[in-house]
Design a protein around this nucleic acid. Structure first.
Length: 930
RNA sequence: AGGCGCGUAGCUCAGCGGUUAGAGCACUUGCUUGACAUGCAAGGGGUCGGUGGUUCGAUUCCACUCGCGCCUACCA
């Protein structure tokens, strides 16, 4: 074996073997355990957030597989309508073409090509992460089977009246030319202006002042509103305004929505281009004027009802921002601009294009969500679905209880085409196919039908993922067995987009909740707590942490393809500063262990590379511990597996292993990966390596112990290691597999892979309190002497003569029983028990219960140093005594505190007092000498 | 406006109504110890954001407050 762990040498080989051997398939007759992967965008790449979530999902899957479950981690990818279409459009753009130039069929064909070309990236990355997904069940949201499910759901919802088509204001992206759902709108405050415009009264001199942030929309105004109780304007209600530029007459109306305290208290009402105004327009039966085309350029105007909109010809065709400038110019020329104030306002932008969105009147398909939401709310209320941590349920409720209808049609080409057909009169027919539509509605071949050009929101198909991947609407065995799935692992950012919708659709169509639990992970942030993003140039590629990356490559990755190229020097500088040497190779297991160790619930994660380095070292520790065990076991007699451990260390380490495994199980059940990881780390390093391996050395070395005892210790060494590898496997799959393969022949374990071994069972390593107590004594003995050595600057190699004062019969028994261990671990030259009444020599002191461990000082240490050391200990003990005495002297405490606590304090006080007496005596002795 | 979360060692984070508040990294000192210098041993370092309350006892529970972050809805 190499002296250090080399992850690159083994990871690929190990994964390939797992995959080729079919170890990932869900088999066996155990209970179901199933996790649905949140399908990543098929043409994307996995980022740190994915790597984090995949680590947790894989750990859960491997753990439950080892517990005997028939475990399925369902893989797959999402077609990601807008995102993918944009990528391909950009490719076309580089060729100087637009998608309209090549036509819909050719374009879609190109997207499929791009998908097949880049779709492997994610699979490759997942293999490097060790993801134990069942590749044979890989799914894509646009697979025929899944598309079939989409159509089926659409048709059934439509039949129930839960999908409808309607002309309404939607969030329109004038760059992508599609409608968006409310969730795809990002509103950020931006610096703008508040224009105060004078609207002349129609039938008298004078004007009203309206304040607006969107002056160009005045072309579509159909009213001015004031608050009904606003005394300044009550007399004007019902009179009319002559709308500048258009010369139209519009009414002054009263509406509660108006805030008299804002601006002048008068609001221009543009029902065609503002969501609030749309509502007001409905309340007052106002006409609605659309003044924009699909590019948000000014049109001649299109009104509901007969009307001359009156948009000046010179404005027609202008972009909305150019139009804004021109409108203001014109109004200023007419003296109709009272003032312009700087104003910060929320500007809605598309989450993909970044374009300023326009409320625009179009025909779209909607899901009537309220009837679906009610049972979905109930499922969380009554605990059929549990959020972890549970405070996310509040977020879920808050949104679900105010849920709006869901606009599901998108004016894109890449996606599931809406299963609706139109005749020449514009009548819409919904059905599973054109044939079905014709049959059902009695439309013979003479009637021309054309399918709806639009596609569905990507999240519509994602919402079906938990059952569409399992074969729904067919009643497949998998659907029956794995649905509802066990847990969903995802980020809070898609609770509304995805989680809520899966719950609604699952309850509606699969007859039950889609998952029992939702584990919401935190976000992976950079070392400054910033969100990782390409545009900030602070992304880390998980594979770069696994394989390492040189500085040049890292800088190039972070600065290429930037939306804002001017940030490049800053990003480069920051990167060079943070990673002057690039990033070394840490291996997958170290990265995975880092994610697990940082995964405390309800909190974002500042990714800390030094933790990864620490866990790389942990891998190396495990590697070398195995090396030690193999060296000491191979070629030697080994006790049979069933033989009882007899030595103290053997009993102790088994007991401690059992406790560690118990902790891991408990913490994994609570999704506390951090605490599970810590329990394993501490057991491995602080107990198995630091103590147990050291304790086996005196036993195993030549002439150390009787052969029979050695054989037992070798048994314990290999058994505990083998179990430890199994216990660590879900978090660190690669190294544990590699080491387990080497350990297996010696341990007597059988089977082709550690990943299909049973997880260690607590019952096999029952707690041994007696052994733990005795080991605690032994450890205290060793630590006491090490402390004297360390603080007194005694060379580690120098053997120390040790005297024991006030040793009880039990102390004496223990010393005799473990003298060989103490000699090795504490480097004692001799251990002698002083007879009662014997005056001890001047010595450095350590206390172990009532016993004093003395290291005679002649020639060893300076008296002043030891005096100071004891003085510090004494001061500490005296402070303790005072605190405890104060506590026990308080009647309130002794009367009210639980008896066990009081008794504990009394015992503590007794120990402290004894310790003080011992220390004072030692100090006095040193003083006599000095 | 409503909701959620965070503030503990230099850094990243655990923890908890009751020992002396812990870990990793960083730091100091000493060690080429027959598994491992990606290591071993010893050590320094914290008024647990502030104020008040509940309690025999608060870093932990409650209220207020300061600072930071996020989500939802938004007044034109």
């Amino acid at each position: 074996m190499d002296k250090t762990y080399q992850p690159a040498a083994i990871e690929r080989r190990v994964y390939q073997r797992w995959e080729e051997s079919g170890f990932f398939a869900a088999t066996g007759d155990g209970p179901a355990y199933c996790i649905m992967i949140p399908p990543p965008n098929v043409t994307g790449t996995l980022h740190m957030g994915h790597a984090f979530q995949h680590t947790l999902m894989d750990a859960l899957t491997r753990y439950h597989r080892m517990l005997g479950c028939r475990a399925l981690w369902q893989p797959g990818t999402d077609h990601a309508g807008i995102a993918t279409q944009m990528v391909v459009e950009r490719q076309l753009d580089a060729e100087g073409k637009r998608r309209q130039d090549i036509g819909r069929d050719a374009f879609v064909e190109r997207v499929w090509q791009w998908k097949s070309q880049s779709g492997d990236t994610i699979c490759r990355q997942m293999r490097r992460l060790g993801d134990s997904v069942d590749w044979s069940r890989d799914r894509f949201t646009m697979d025929p089977e899944l598309s079939h499910a989409v159509t089926e759901v659409f048709v059934r919802l439509h039949e129930e009246g839960l999908i409808y088509r309607g002309k309404r204001l939607v969030n329109w992206d004038p760059v992508l030319h599609t409608a968006l759902s409310d969730l795809e709108v990002l509103s950020e405050p931006e610096q703008g202006s508040l224009w105060h415009l004078r609207y002349p009264l129609a039938d008298a001199d004078g004007h009203l002042v309206v304040a607006t942030t969107r002056p160009e929309t005045m072309l579509g105004d159909t009213a001015v509103a004031v608050h009904p109780q606003d005394g300044r304007y009550t007399a004007l209600i019902g009179r009319r305004i002559r709308l500048p530029l258009t010369n139209r007459l519009i009414p002054i109306i009263a509406d509660e929505h108006v805030d008299p305290a804002f601006g002048s208290g008068c609001v221009k009402i543009t029902p065609g281009h503002d969501f609030n105004d749309y509502e007001i327009g409905r309340r007052h039966d106002l006409a609605l004027i659309n003044v924009f085309d699909r590019n948000a350029h000014i049109t001649r105007g299109e009104a509901t009802g007969e009307m001359d909109v009156g948009i000046p010809a010179e404005l027609v065709g202008l972009d909305r921002f150019a139009a804004r400038a021109r409108v203001i110019e014109r109004l200023q020329a007419d003296g109709l601009v009272e003032k312009i104030e700087p104003h910060t306002l929320p500007v809605p932008r598309g989450d993909r294009s970044g374009a300023v969105l326009e409320p625009w009147l179009t025909d779209q398909w909607y899901v009537r969500v309220a009837p679906l939401a009610a049972p979905a709310i109930e499922a969380v209320e009554d605990g059929r679905i549990r959020f972890v941590p549970d405070n996310w349920a509040r977020t879920y409720f808050q949104w679900m209880r105010n849920i709006q209808d869901w606009c599901i049609s998108r004016q894109l080409w890449w996606g599931h085409r809406i299963p609706a057909w139109y005749d020449d009169d514009g009548n819409a027919y919904v059905g599973r196919s054109e044939t079905e539509v014709r049959a059902r509605h009695g439309l013979d071949a003479g009637v021309r039908l054309s399918q709806d050009e639009d596609v569905l929101d990507t999240w519509f198909s994602s919402a079906l993922w938990p059952f569409s991947t399992l074969g729904w609407p067919r009643a497949t065995p998998e659907l029956g067995f794995f649905y509802p799935t066990s847990v969903l692992v995802t980020g809070f950012d898609i609770i509304f987009f995805w989680v809520a919708r899966m719950i609604m659709m699952g309850l509606k169509f699969a007859g039950d909740v889609p998952f029992r639990e939702v584990y919401i992970t935190g976000l992976i942030r950079d070392e400054n707590g910033e969100k990782m993003s390409k545009s900030k140039g602070n992304i880390l590629d998980p594979l770069d942490l696994i394989d390492g990356v040189d500085l040049q490559t890292l800088v190039a990755k972070r600065t290429s393809g930037l939306m804002q190229p001017h940030l490049r020097p800053r990003i480069e500088k920051a990167t060079r500063k943070q990673f002057p040497q690039g990033i070394p190779e840490f291996g997958t297991d170290a990265l995975r262990f880092t994610f697990a160790a940082l995964a405390s619930t309800g909190r974002d994660i500042r990714f800390d590379l030094s933790r990864t380095e620490g866990y790389r070292n942990f891998c190396n520790k495990l590697w070398n511990a195995t090396r030690f065990v193999l060296m000491n076991v191979e070629g030697h007699a080994l006790a049979a597996g069933g033989d009882a451990a007899t030595s103290l260390p053997d009993r102790w380490i088994r007991s401690r292993l059992g406790r560690a495994v118990a902790t891991v199980k408990e913490q994994l059940a609570a999704y506390r990966f951090d605490l599970a990881a810590r329990a394993l780390y501490e057991f491995t390093w602080n107990e198995y390596c630091d103590w147990y391996l050291e304790l086996t050395k005196p036993v195993l070395q030549e002439g150390g112990a009787a052969p029979a005892e050695q054989a037992l210790t070798r048994r314990a060494l290999i058994d505990v290691l083998e179990a430890l590898l199994r216990a660590l496997h879900p978090l660190m799959p690669f190294i544990t597999e590699e080491l387990w393969q080497r350990v297996r022949p010696l341990s007597g374990a059988t089977g082709p892979t550690v990943m299909l071994q049973p997880y260690p069972c607590v019952d096999e390593y029952p707690a041994d309190d007696a052994a733990e107590a005795e080991m605690a004594w032994l450890q205290a003995f060793v630590l006491g002497l090490r402390q004297i050595r360390g603080e007194m600057d005694i060379a580690p190699a120098r053997p120390l003569p040790v005297l024991l004062q006030d040793a009880s019969a039990e102390d004496r028994r223990r010393v005799a029983a473990h003298a060989h261990l103490l000699r090795q671990l504490a480097r004692t030259e001799s251990i002698d028990v002083l007879d009662p009444g014997t005056e001890p020599p001047v010595a450095a002191t350590a206390l172990l219960g009532a016993m004093r461990i003395l290291v005679p000082m002649a020639g060893l240490i300076d008296v002043a140093g030891e005096r100071e050391r004891l003085g510090k200990a004494l001061a500490r003990a005296q402070a303790d005594r005072q605190r405890i005495e104060g506590k026990l002297g308080n009647r309130q405490f002794t009367d009210n505190a639980p008896p066990a606590v009081v008794a504990g304090e009394r015992e503590k006080l007794a120990n402290t007092r004894r310790e003080i007496a011992q220390l004072e005596e030692q100090i006095a002795r040193l003083d006599r000498l000095g």
